[in-house]
Simulated scan of single mutants.
Amino acid sequence: MSILFYTAVGLLSATFGSLVGLGGGIIIVPALVYLGPYFVGESISVATAVGTSLAVLIFTALSSTLTFVKQKRVDFKSGWLYFLTCGPGAMLGSYVTQFVDASSFQLSFGIFMLLMAILLILRDAMKPINIQWSIKRTYTDGQGQTFQYGYSVLPALCIGLAVGFISGLFGIGGGSLFVPAMVLLFRYPPHVATATSMFVILLSSILGSLTHLGLGEVNLWMVAGLAPTAIVGGWLGALIASRLSSRKLMWVLRITFILVAIKMIWEGLTSP
């Protein structure tokens, strides 16, 4: 029964997570905490679920990133820039996990996610942010549509720090902040935002996992059970994303953020 549980959770979380650039922790963490006692036969603490989820994200992000690289959708220059602060932020967030009041943070983070979802929904009706970023990029998707986007060093470093901290704190990968920030603030096309987000998640999850491992908050047996199908799911999610148009992928992102927001607000209100 536990093998089937790991197979289903690993495949579902990785496929969905890599499709929208979130990483899959939003599925793994609650699955281990709430369903673990029934399918694994033991209670799993939130800290262990977060640490284990972050370790599995390494395999998910590696698989999807390799697929995105073949599709030439990863912006490595901006990805490495985000990682400069995202990596240390992930380690700090991982360390703070043992002290934080998770319920209050989930509530506030859920409200923030809901606001991000609303902004994404209103994005087409909103006037573009009139900021001339110092670094400019262009990208042409599979349908021949060309996008222009850009960023500056200091805002990118600040976003990387915030995303890394939240990634390590909750094991969710950080794409829930990265993707809307890239799309709304820097005007990344959704495909590039998703792919670059997964690349940064790969790097930051390694550092965050090492911190959780040092604190004894990673169950290696669970990682071994989840990793094989997470690798398959990472590849599958990236493949599905490549078949979607930018407009369709944007709607997947919007719906995803609404669902994540509802989940985190509910947990924040109902947790003791």
Rank of each mutant, 00 (worst) to 15 (best):
G21H: 04
S245F: 08
K263D: 05
F109G: 01
S245P: 13
F59A: 12
T7L: 15
L57A: 12
I159C: 05
Y188K: 09
G233D: 08
G237L: 09
F186N: 03
V192G: 04
T85V: 00
F39I: 12
A125Q: 13
R123F: 02
R247K: 08
Y151P: 01
I231E: 02
G24A: 14
T7W: 14
P228I: 09
G87A: 15
T60L: 08
S78A: 13
A8E: 03
S246V: 03
S64Y: 01
Q145K: 14
I258K: 00
V96M: 13
S242F: 07
G234I: 05
L269M: 10
L185S: 01
Q148E: 14
Y34R: 14
A156G: 08
R187I: 03
S13D: 09
G208L: 09
K72P: 08
A125R: 14
N130P: 00
V69C: 09
M1W: 01
F170V: 00
K248V: 03
V56H: 01
R254D: 06
L114N: 01
Y34W: 14
Y6A: 10
S152Q: 06
G164P: 00
V260S: 03
W133N: 07
P272D: 12
F105I: 14
V223F: 04
T194I: 15
Y149N: 08
S2H: 11
M198V: 15
T97I: 10
T65W: 03
M198A: 12
N219V: 07
Q71L: 13
S205N: 08
T97G: 02
L114I: 02
L19P: 03
L12A: 15
F186W: 13
E42G: 01
G24V: 13
A49G: 09
F257M: 14
G171C: 04
T48G: 05
G36H: 10
V179S: 05
V74H: 05
I44E: 11
L269V: 11
L119Q: 04
I118C: 04
V260M: 02
D124C: 02
